[in-house]
Write a protein that binds this DNA or RNA. Structure first.
Lengths: 229, 229
DNA sequence: TTCGATGATTTTGTATGCAGGATTTGTGGC
DNA sequence: GCCACAAATCCTGCATACAAAATCATCGAA
């Protein structure tokens, strides 16, 4: 599958109102998402400051914010690097998100009787299929992420929505995409077709069962691939 | 129930190795936990800097880290305040943590055959009963929090452990304690006695059912108390 | 009195300087 | 050639300076 890697956005001209810190945070997150910054990569404040045309102060504040988010790890007197996760940690993360997404799936499914939520879910799912048709791994994972975002928003639990949109969730989700090279993606999308259909049917219980079953299948594949690596 | 409110720790003398940023972060989190800083309270960088005997730079970095954690909210050109959550948001949060803790309960219960995990769970539960006996709301909630921390650690999912120890989880959990004044705490502890016994029995499924049932009871009480407020 | 304008004060946001701990580079011994 | 060690460099962490924005206080008019 293909992979995009564009340069980050320009240093911004006159977006007064937004602070430099948030600009730098967004830029770094964007860089991570685009693969410009990879896990374990060291982030040198002075370099970032020059790259983004700001001083080191807002860069340091941005790095601390991202450290709070869990995207960056800070070591005393050794600065910042993009957080690196082992396969084992990603397995744990996936097991964790299963619990989260199950809640989202359950809440959203119970609202499929209403017109607008239903249309929104369908719209987001179409984007998943579209990315799948293009065989673009990153876009596919991002579209699936957006699909779950939509489910969570529709579900109506604000904390769930807040949590799932945090950068480190996006980041870890993306890392999952780069994992398990020989993965059976055909079965993956088939699972989601079933899940999506069940969600639309409004049957919360079955939707959760299908979703949990899918995650368990992914987990078993990841655990298998863990041993050789 | 009683409530503690001690001043924060002294500005530290020679704890070289730990950065001032982490000192300030810990101090603020500690202040939140002790009730020195309350939700909505404005945090003025210069004041904090003076209080803790440091300059504004590490304070600002600490505030950004806490903003990333979700303990503090930053508004452009208006600085930082302790994040304030509505009852509705706390309801959502509790519904969310149910999903998380269910995972922890399930994983930990399946390890109750082993000696050390079992002893640790019992030890942490004893602390819960001890705080209950003292009728100290905050200590009680903190002990319950520590109990769940132990369950999560024993469960073996590192991400779950990592997540549940984040300051904002501690913070929101504490906010729950201040909620619902006329709460039926007797039923609350009774529920936990049952949950704890079931966890020790090693029956994952029943433990999860009891725990979920407890949370649903809490949620229904919170939702009821929501209307008048 | 109440409202709004205006200036003083506070506070934030950013840049910069510098000491000290890492890291790298260079050098000599084995 | 390879490792130990020392010097040079780099980088971080913290303090400080200053401009711009927000807040507050004062005052005058409706």
């Amino acid at each position: 599958m293909a992979r995009s890697a564009l340069p980050a956005a320009p240093p911004a001209e006159d977006d007064s109102g937004a602070s430099l810190v948030s600009f730098v945070v967004d830029s770094i997150v964007d860089g991570v998402m685009r693969g410009r910054y990879v896990p374990g990569q060291r982030l040198i404040a002075a370099d970032l400051a020059e790259d983004y045309g700001v001083s080191r102060a807002p860069v340091r504040e941005a790095l601390h914010m991202l450290a709070g988010e869990g995207v960056v790890e800070l070591v005393a007197n050794r600065g910042a690097r993009i957080r690196r996760l082992s396969v084992a940690e990603l397995v744990d993360f996936l097991e964790f998100t299963e619990a989260i997404c199950v809640l989202g799936v359950r809440l959203a499914t119970s609202r499929m009787g209403q017109e607008e939520p239903r249309a929104e879910v369908i719209r987001h799912y179409d984007a998943v299929e579209e990315a799948w048709a293009r065989r673009h791994a990153r876009d596919f994972v991002v579209a699936l992420y957006q699909y779950h975002i939509a489910l969570n928003r529709i579900g109506g639990n604000r904390f769930l929505e807040f949590f799932y949109e945090r950068p480190y969730i996006r980041f870890y989700t993306l890392l999952l995409a780069d994992l398990v090279p020989g993965f059976n993606w055909d079965k993956y999308i088939d699972n989601y077709r079933l899940i999506h259909a069940t969600i639309l049917s409004g049957d919360s219980h079955t939707a959760v069962v299908h979703f949990a079953s899918h995650i368990r299948w992914v987990l078993s594949n990841m655990r298998r691939s863990e041993a050789p690596a």
